[in-house]
Design a protein around this nucleic acid. Structure first.
Lengths: 332, 332
DNA sequence: GTGAAAGCGCTAACAT
DNA sequence: ATGTTAGCGCTTTCAC
């Protein structure tokens, strides 16, 4: 293994000079800098991360708890992670993978100085991890928005507003009895932050508009078709659907077409999902995009800022936007 | 921050005793052990990972390159990662997330002693990363099976054999003209290892059985329906389909039902996908399970073994198994 | 503009 | 069965 001492010798300078060339923390004459840089590439030197973190008390690693639980939307998770990793790298940070069921893992990582900060996904409305985070010496950030006190900064998509937006659109399409086809039961039951907030926004918007609205947990995959039947069995006049369940979307849509509930002239669905998912449905549908990759990027920016000691982060919510792809006969 | 010296003082022993209590590398009297352990929990001590890696020359971290490229099956990726992380943790290893497009990232991690080993997913038949891996001081493992020399050990599902198995089944169902509906174009084009091997096994099996077989790249989502039409336009007698494209599966299946190509009495499809995906199709279909989680676990076992200096790993392929869910009228 | 040297918190000889 | 101590490879005062 090649060390900083080897580089120093090769370049004919002292160890500290090499260190300062790398960090840029003091002015170096152009010639020395050149010599050192040549020595570094000649020898193929990479500083030992452990030694560095020991001396500098920082790791350039961010711990990320990703949800490996059932019911989560893997597609969205992957996109968030994609954006996150890419953006973190541009700030010089690597990502240490932690799993969301492992409360002790994140403590271990933090207390063992393996990470400079912690990032949590798949946050629940009343998440037990938040208390732990607040005790940790490193800064932390949630991708999600729990209820109650905000002991920890948050970044998320504004699911609550998305509920309002969807109801607006469904009303404009002429629907007066609406249903939210949402996340699977287990996600709802553990009060995953986004599921709670979407339902809240949806129901509040329905109430405000004086239309009828109901919320339904929905299993992923083909069984979603049966749920549509169930909803209609309970109230045959339900005609507008907000679908927030990626793998159920094609099945819900197909069932609504079969039942004649959705036609080109009278669209019945607004989907909440990444754009490519909305486009994979056999016919055009309106959708509110979940900007997953941008969300990951935003989270990376905020956490890097926090590590750098930037301004207190607070709450940041990305606003939803509706994309209209249908041209209903009855739309004015 | 609490250090090993604090613990030693609290317990009234020397620093090395504390270290040896933690590592178990020498015999400690029960009383001292107890005292040290109490001191550790009292003070909430976690050893500094950087200091540890500096002194011990090992990090207890495995670098994992996950594919964040288009066309990959996120569902399968997540399952592999799930199995991998869980199993690695039981061996005391954490996972550093690297991305598969970042060739330099993995070198950086390895040369900077950030990881004890490297694990690569989404391997291509002639993968440029392999040459780099072989030069690195740390051991590495591929999840995949490239062609040519095996400079690096490999673990994977036996996609080639899966091709044979599927052809067996489709022939038993009475089909004589077969089509493989496979990965998206971009995955095929970069000669992703699994896509290549599945196609090879499928075509070899067709040739061996004297039946007609063709391979088709397939876009994810709804456009898959159109591909079915295209295949049949080219040869209307194609009747047996092996589908290896998770998000296309429901659409391919629906199209085949619409066209009357698939009936309960005469099943037309064998799917290659995780079991839950196969079960989410509206009707029972035969499938070959991709044991993604088990694959991740196997990879974790092998790499931990390699780090521990275990026996040279070579190639390990998990055998496919067919699950029959259909009871065709014509089956004997 | 550059060097010398004192740590950072551990592990693992080498002691006894 | 336990203590002493020399590093591990870097960053960062201090000194010039």
């Amino acid at each position: 293994m090649v060390t900083i001492a080897d580089v120093a010798e090769e370049a004919g300078v002292s160890i500290s000079t090499v260190s300062y060339v790398m960090s840029g923390k003091r002015t170096i004459s152009p010639e020395t800098r050149k010599r050192v840089e040549r020595a570094i590439t000649t020898l193929g030197f990479s500083p030992h991360a452990g030694a560095r973190s020991l001396a500098s008390r920082s790791t350039n690693v961010i711990g990320l708890q990703i949800p490996l639980r059932s019911g989560v939307d893997v597609h969205v998770v992957m996109e968030i992670v994609t954006g996150l990793v890419a953006r973190a790298r541009t700030h010089g940070y690597d990502i240490l993978l932690l799993t969301s069921d492992d409360l002790r893992g994140m403590e271990r990582a933090a207390r063992g100085s393996m990470v400079d900060a912690l990032l949590l996904m798949d946050v629940e409305s009343d998440d037990p991890r938040i208390g732990v985070l607040a005790q940790l010496p490193q800064p932390s950030l949630l991708i999600g928005l729990p209820e109650g006190r905000r002991a920890v900064p948050c970044v998320d998509f504004d699911f609550e507003e998305a509920g309002w937006l969807a109801v607006d659109r469904l009303r404009a399409l002429g629907h007066r009895r609406l249903a939210l086809i949402g996340s699977p039961e287990e996600v709802m039951e553990r009060h995953t932050s986004y599921a709670d907030r979407l339902a809240r926004g949806f129901l509040a918007a329905c109430a405000a508009a004086g239309v009828d609205g109901s919320v339904h947990a929905c299993p992923p995959g083909a069984e979603a078709g049966a749920l549509v039947d169930e909803v209609l069995a309970h109230d045959a006049d339900v005609s507008g659907f907000l679908v927030h369940n990626e793998s159920a979307l094609p099945h819900v849509f197909a069932r609504l077409v079969d039942l004649g509930k959705h036609t080109t002239g009278k669209p019945a669905v607004v989907a909440l999902c990444p754009d490519d998912v909305a486009l994979s449905v056999p016919a055009p549908i309106d959708s509110i995009a979940v900007p997953a990759e941008a969300l990951g990027e935003a989270a990376a920016e905020v956490i890097c800022d926090m590590i750098a000691g930037g301004t207190p982060a607070g709450v940041r919510l990305i606003a939803p936007t509706l994309t209209v792809r249908t041209t209903p006969a009855t739309a004015k």
